[in-house]
Simulated scan of single mutants.
Amino acid sequence: MIFEKLPGGKIPENIFRKEEHMPLIWLLVGILIGLLVSRFIFKDKPIGSLRVDQSDPDSGTYLFLEIDRGGMDDIYKKQTVRLRVKIEDYISHK
């Protein structure tokens, strides 16, 4: 075993002491908290909705872009945008 190569062939007593590993544990906890917080802060917010209407079986699917107030500014500022998808059929099939 690896511990047999140590002087005396014994495991040092202080190798598993919790007090020495606490700074490393707190560092890892801080990194995880930072990653979670930054994920919510820098998450893209949707600028509008893409409405999908499949109510007319004779024609294809219709797509409508509904932009929220202030959403046009984001279209010009960003290369990619995020949309909510709403699947709504407005013509009933009775």
Rank of each mutant, 00 (worst) to 15 (best):
R39S: 13
M22E: 03
R51Q: 09
R51G: 00
G30R: 06
V37G: 04
E13S: 10
E4I: 01
D73H: 06
S92Q: 13
L83C: 05
I25G: 03
G30A: 14
D56Y: 01
G71D: 10
I41A: 11
V81H: 06
P23F: 02
R82Q: 13
E66K: 14
G9Q: 05
I75G: 04
V81Q: 05
H93W: 07
G9A: 06
L28V: 11
T80C: 03
I47W: 03
G9P: 01
V29M: 13
W26A: 14
V37K: 02
D68W: 00
E66F: 05
R84K: 14
R82V: 13
V52Y: 14
L50E: 11
K94D: 10
L63V: 04
P23N: 07
I41T: 07
I25Y: 12
V81K: 06
K77F: 00
G60A: 04
F16N: 02
I47K: 01
I47V: 14
V85R: 11
D56E: 07
G71W: 13
L65G: 02
E19Q: 10
L35F: 05
D89A: 13
S38Y: 06
V85D: 04
P46H: 01
K18S: 04
G70Q: 09
L50R: 12
I31E: 03
P12S: 06
L28N: 10
I41G: 03
L28Y: 09
Y90A: 02
T80A: 05
N14V: 04
S55E: 00
D44N: 03
